[in-house]
């Protein structure tokens, strides 16, 4: 109670998200053919550790893996430390198999971790690229995501917590846009 989003906000997010998906479809060809900077080396599909480092950065991923100590980023633009954000030139290159595999990797990581901004952005971007109708594996992964968000939300100390909007956004998109209605906030 007090942590759930308003219905108006949920409706607005679903409408905006639908527009975002249409724009991705419209611009995908353009962005997928743009040359990537030479420092952007996308991991192979099977390279789970590589993808975690690519999306979350060494600062988040390797620090979590190494007993919770935090590595200081050397620069705000050092993407190997901070992770690559979901630039359109990157996500437009991902086919559905990769989108789903990456969702599975990041949702699996999230089961044992906090919601950091890098993760929120990537989860949003991957949901925006996830084609409907969903295949059963996709259903299962996004439901796991919404449940984890709900679980984490119950642990927040107040509605001022900076993680609350992101958790509610992800729950809203899974439940309302992807029609997992039993998970929706009323």
């Amino acid at each position: 109670e007090g942590l759930s989003p308003s219905l108006g906000w949920q409706r607005q997010q679903v409408a905006n998200f639908s527009d975002v998906r249409q724009s991705i479809a419209k611009h995908r060809r353009h962005w997928s053919t743009q040359t990537l900077d030479e420092n952007v080396v996308m991991p192979k599909l099977s390279d789970e550790e590589g993808w975690k480092t690519f999306c979350l950065g060494e600062t988040v991923y390797k620090a979590t893996a190494a007993s919770g100590t935090h590595l200081e980023p050397s620069s705000a633009l050092d993407y190997s430390k901070m992770g690559f954000p979901p630039f359109l030139s990157i996500v437009s290159r991902l086919n559905q198999t990769t989108v789903l595999a990456l969702l599975e990797i990041l949702v699996g990581w999230f089961e044992e971790a906090e919601l950091v901004p890098q993760l929120g952005r990537w989860l949003y971007a991957l949901l925006a690229c996830l084609e409907k109708p969903l295949i059963p594996e996709a259903h299962s992964i996004i439901r796991q995501l919404a449940r984890r968000c709900g679980q984490l939300r119950t642990t927040l100390p107040s509605q001022e917590d900076t993680r609350l909007p992101a958790l509610n956004l992800l729950i809203c998109l899974v439940a309302r846009y992807f029609e997992q209605n039993d998970l929706a906030d009323q």
């Binding site: 998200f17 975002v20 979901p86 971007a125 509610n168």
Partner: peptide
């Protein structure tokens, strides 16, 4: 035309990141 140029301004390489950040920034509780 103007609409096309507006659209390409919005849909730069960081468009998804901006869309996410905007959604989070406008959050309202019930």
């Amino acid at each position: 035309g103007a609409a096309q140029s507006d659209d390409s301004d919005i849909w730069d390489d960081t468009a998804l990141i901006k869309a996410y950040d905007k959604a989070v920034a406008t959050f309202k509780t019930a």
